[in-house]
Design a protein around this nucleic acid. Structure first.
Length: 522
DNA sequence: TCTGGGGTCCTAGGACCC
DNA sequence: TCTGGGGTCCTAGGACCC
């Protein structure tokens, strides 16, 4: 339970503000007003349980403040306290992140860099250095995972944490103390500041991490969600962008409260079935989305915007090959292949077209992707010039079917294709899995073309970074391993080059049957 | 001011099958 | 001869998020 009896009986505000590191700036915003008593232990469905006690979810949303520019300011002290802008620095660039010093001049994300330079000519304009950001992100997320392994990273600088199982007796005070410890730990270890919203759902946590920025914490007591949301603009709801807001405003709906007052039918008529239903629930403070620790990729793509529009098909073909090479590298690095090849172009007038084609078999082969992408490009009129071209692959599966092997396979080794989802669902192979045997694509590993190690499915292995696991599938030049931990979440599937020196056989095989071994121990 | 790059999800129409 | 409905897959576009 979330409630603190004293507080719930005295109707005091449960809000909590940032710790002492908050820089000078806008005055602290707090959860103002009197909160009603929380509902004592009202069950919220059966999905979250710890032992026999059901508790209201305790969800955090952690968001690093002005992340890219903060990393740059840490790495280069001369930038501290000054306006810094990270983004595309070319003629058609846009701002990824503006430091708070730059925001004071009206610079913000997604603004064309040209406009930002006009508003703040003396700022430092930097191209993004994703490697540095990834390093910092990993350090922060590791600290957060020490609080709970139920962490869903939604972007390089954002994550949801579910504290429910680990803290079934959470109170506003205990959540506040825990989060302030985490924020202090992040700052001490990395120099970065994180803002956090805490509440009974992702929605409430997310909205309030935004309101807590920069370097703040807002804890929303259970039971106060709807009334807190009601006066907010509909734009505060994640999923309401410019188009949806305009549509709502045209019908006199500008606040969350007005949206909540609509009939469900009206909301659906206005916004469509899925969107209308979800936003209507959100407006009532209802959000049952779970924190999901692992998610299978659905597509891989790469695109580029030209400095000036391009009409020359030879040039376009060269870009298609380069973009495909980037996509292919990432597919192979993750052991993925896809069935649908997508070509995307943006024309001189900023209109965007996509053309796609679906193959009989998934592929991760550059030549195959290029062939189809070029065919799609050939069907488009480019005479007025393109400003962007992109290549993508979707319909992903975890395993490649190498064309090379077509002739080698005999009927008993006929490949069985499985989707990434089959392997990434959290209970795969677990006690509740109706079919714990891995549905692995079998490929002939008896006669690889080189002297590299040959792995057979079921073999036990160890990997320096990921811990212990067993071989789940093998392909030409690569091996796919399911891990048991530690170091990697239970059930995690990873693919490696089969001569990866960090991949070591454990000998003799002594691995227990996997359905005895995988448990959901959260 | 003139709009990046990487994604996710939804909708809608048409083909096709039963 | 005229005409079903449901389900699935594919394609294209659009909104949205960071």
């Amino acid at each position: 339970m979330w409630c603190n009896r004293e507080q719930s009986e005295t109707h005091t505000s449960w809000s909590t503000r940032a710790g002492p590191r908050r820089p000078p700036g806008p005055s602290p915003r707090s959860c103002s007003g009197r909160a009603p008593a929380c509902h004592p232990a009202r069950p919220v469905g059966s999905r979250r349980q710890t032992g026999s006690v059901r508790s209201r979810p305790v969800i955090l949303h952690l968001d690093l403040d002005a992340f890219f520019t903060a990393v740059e300011q840490l790495h280069k002290p001369s930038l501290r306290g000054k306006p810094v802008v990270v983004g595309g620095v070319g003629g058609r660039g846009v701002v990824s992140t503006a430091s708070y010093e730059a925001r004071a001049f009206g610079v913000h994300s997604a603004m064309p860099t040209a406009e930002a330079r006009r508003r703040c000519p003396h700022a430092a304009y930097l191209s993004p250095r994703f490697e540095a950001y990834r390093d910092a992100s990993v350090r922060v997320m590791d600290l957060a995972r020490a609080v709970t392994p139920l962490l869903e990273q939604v972007s390089i600088d954002e994550a949801y944490l579910d504290l429910t199982p680990a803290h079934p007796d959470a109170t506003v005070e205990s959540v506040t103390a825990l989060v302030e410890d985490l924020r202090a730990g992040i700052h001490a270890a990395t120099g970065l500041t994180a803002s956090v919203g805490a509440g009974t759902s992702k929605l409430v946590a997310k909205i309030h991490s935004d309101l807590a920025k920069p370097d703040g914490l807002l804890v929303v007591p259970p039971g106060t969600e709807a009334e807190r949301l009601a006066p907010m603009s509909v734009r505060a709801i994640p999923g309401v962008g410019p188009a949806t807001a305009a549509r709502l405003t045209a019908h006199g709906v500008g606040t969350v409260g007005r949206l909540a007052a609509l009939d469900l039918g009206e909301a659906v008529a206005l916004l469509g079935k899925a969107h209308g239903t979800q936003l209507h629930a959100f407006a009532h403070g209802v959000d049952d989305r779970e924190v999901v620790t692992e998610r299978a990729a659905k597509s891989v793509s790469a695109e580029t915007t030209f400095p000036t529009d391009v009409t020359d098909r030879v040039t376009l073909g060269r870009h298609v090959r380069e973009l495909t090479a980037r996509v292919g590298r990432r597919l192979r690095a993750d052991g993925l292949s896809g069935r649908t090849v997508v070509l995307k172009v943006r024309r001189h007038d900023f209109s965007t077209l996509t053309r796609s084609t679906t193959l009989d078999q998934p592929t991760d082969d550059d030549a195959a992707v290029v062939r189809h992408a070029e065919r799609l490009l050939a069907g488009l009129d480019v005479s007025n010039g393109l400003r962007l071209i992109g290549v993508g692959v979707s319909g992903l599966s975890l395993y490649t079917q190498p064309d090379l092997l077509d002739g080698l396979l005999d009927e008993t080794l006929a490949p069985v294709r499985t989707t990434a989802e089959d392997f990434d669902r959290p209970d795969a192979g677990g006690a509740d899995d109706p079919d714990p045997s891995p549905d692995v694509e079998l490929v002939d590993t008896s006669g690889p073309p080189t002297g590299r190690p040959t792995w057979r499915p079921g073999q036990d292995v160890q990997h320096a970074e990921h811990g212990r696991g067993w071989v789940q599938g093998s392909g030409v030049g690569r091996v796919t391993v399911r891990f048991e931990g530690p170091g990697t979440p239970v059930g995690r599937v990873r693919t490696f080059a089969d001569d990866d020196p960090d991949l070591v056989a454990t000998d003799p095989p002594r691995w227990p049957a996997q359905d005895d071994h995988i448990t959901d121990d959260y």
